[in-house]
Design a protein around this nucleic acid. Structure first.
Lengths: 203, 203, 203, 203
DNA sequence: CATGAATGAGCCTTCATTCAT
DNA sequence: TATGAATGAAGGCTCATTCAT
């Protein structure tokens, strides 16, 4: 096996472990998942996990890092393909958020449920990748304000938090009820409508 | 000791345990909190907890039930004192949500972080009290739609979820950063503004 | 159960664990002994051990402390009953050393084999009780020097070490071969003969 | 590579592993030393160790065998160069014991601490090389008895044990305190003085 | 022969829960 | 009811050993 092949093999094993962890965490939650279950899911021995991750906490953190990075890359790639003003992009963002979640059910379940715990209780972990995600959203808001399309008096940080919260909670419900992914377009449209135009009736 | 005094004594002890659990869960999370820590916080023996609660899961559920019930009562009392149309009430709801959280910091930390886990992993628990809370919000939306103030085409259930999500996420950030409670008015106002009027600039 | 009885009960349990550990360590050595084996030997549950000792290391250290203390007490009691000059006392010391070992076979096996390891590798443990033991011996030497019976030019600390080493090694052989305890008098006498006649001042 | 070179290469690798093990065992003890640490110290892969030794126990035993053999060779070489009666040789033996230890600090630390454990717990290992070492000492005693210089009534086996114990314990203290090797002459002289003057026949 | 990634048996320790008092 | 000492199942992690390359 050449060095290149070895590296690929290693990455494949690491990825298998991450995928096994994702599946297990999504189904039973971090604290209810045994390391041995992850190993079994990944098709490796228990000890092998510790060749790639320092401990169970590190596995959780690495999973966040890795998957959020992937999400952000996809999001930015798709967003950059969207032409239009910031409102158009915001609608696209909302849509993509749901779309990615529906396409990656385990990931969505994992993040909606575990993100908060880990942010608070996994020691010294500040979840920088999640911050990056929020920053993209915040960037869109600020772009809208610069374009004069979004009200300048709003705190862009607060707004991005609120939007993420709305999306996240709706998604949580979606994953909990394990409803068909068909409604996503409807839900995405409605959320965008509320956010952009508000709840009130216009004449 | 009369029967009445006994009952009160029991309720007091039960309440002490719940309060201890709340404090501990808020600080360290459900899974990182030991039953013995709760007992110590409550000033009772470890075994005593099992006279009032079936097990640790039951304690978590009971805490949700009890505190959500209290929240709902306060919310309904305050809301019923608000005169005005549904939009006024919605603004009041948002404001009260934040206010209650700021006044009950531990409770807010507990709910924002533990609600999702418990909903998903504590077996067979559907969190009916939280459903009640959402239903109040949903009721306000539907009232607004009936009054013609809120767009009829919106799914009231979806909307209430989204609103709760927005509030919850902002609150989470607030409690995580342990910022001063002074900004709550500002935050509440901004969130209401977005929800009701939307993000876009009006002329 | 009264407080006094409780205390006694606790001490009994602690003692049972120490005795179980002693037996197990003597037979298989510290590193080859499982905590569960100690528990089983002591007739308690595994977890019970951790109510009385911080961890396995602490159990080892506590065992040293406790048993050495007992040995020192017995030694001092017996020595104080010996009337005669320092050479008589030294002979008594040697004799007692062997006698105690023969009467407490497990203890002897434990100390001869584990003392060195623990002194070196159990972190930050300086084995003060063993130092006390050596100091008694050193005291006898110095008394002999003061009385003019033992050569003044000898380093009392070095001498006490050497004597202890001689006794300890002979004892080790004794316990390893599990020979009958009958020879102890002979061995003790020979060792004393070698030591004493080498120590005395010449005219 | 010729057969001879191969053999030398193998022996060199085997020796490197032994040396690595010695260093590691001296510093952390047998049970606290990982095979991987030995491999790293020796500059070989973990698996390589198992090409030269059956397992970790075998490595320990082989280390004893190898180093004791070397010690015995040196000792005998030096002793055979000593001319004089058995008492002169005994003094030389004591001196050499300390000298070798000071010149091979790791070896001294290793033997003083690990010899007893291994003798007792490494299954079915009787440490023949150590027995050889003792036999040299015993031979000197018996020679002295034959020459009429050492009291005939003493058990030469017991005496050799006692002498070894005295030397070993003093050495242990020396290595534990990591004192300067300068005192060795003094210590050696004192120990010899005690031992010899106690052993000789009186006129 | 040499490598070192992979294995998985094994063990210390924790902690929710029980129960004799 | 209340206690808290005792329990023992369970799980994270280590590390000696193996084996495909």
């Amino acid at each position: 096996m050449t060095e290149v092949e070895k590296q690929r093999n290693n990455n494949e094993k690491r990825e298998r472990i991450l995928e096994g962890a994702l599946k297990a965490f999504a189904k039973k939650g971090f604290y209810n998942t045994k390391v041995s279950e992850i190993a079994s899911e990944a098709g490796v021995a228990d000890g092998t996990i510790y060749l790639y991750f320092k401990n169970k906490d590190d596995l959780l953190i690495s999973l966040f890092e890795d998957r959020m990075e992937w999400v952000i890359e996809r999001l930015q790639a798709e967003l950059s393909a969207v032409s239009g003003d910031s409102l158009v992009k915001l609608r696209a963002f909302v849509h993509l958020h749901f779309l990615l979640a529906v396409e990656n059910r385990d990931l969505a379940e994992f993040i909606t449920v575990e993100l908060r715990q880990s942010a608070k209780f996994v020691k010294e972990y500040k979840n920088p990748k999640f911050a990056d995600y929020l920053r993209i959203l915040q960037g869109l808001i600020e772009q809208g304000q610069a374009e004069g399309l979004i009200r300048a008096e709003l705190d862009s940080k607060l707004v991005s938090r609120a939007i993420f919260g709305a999306l996240d909670e709706v998604l949580l419900q979606l994953t909990l009820s394990r409803s068909a992914p068909g409604d996503v377009v409807n839900e995405s449209t409605q959320i965008s409508a509320i956010l952009i135009d508000g709840l009130i009736t216009r004449d």
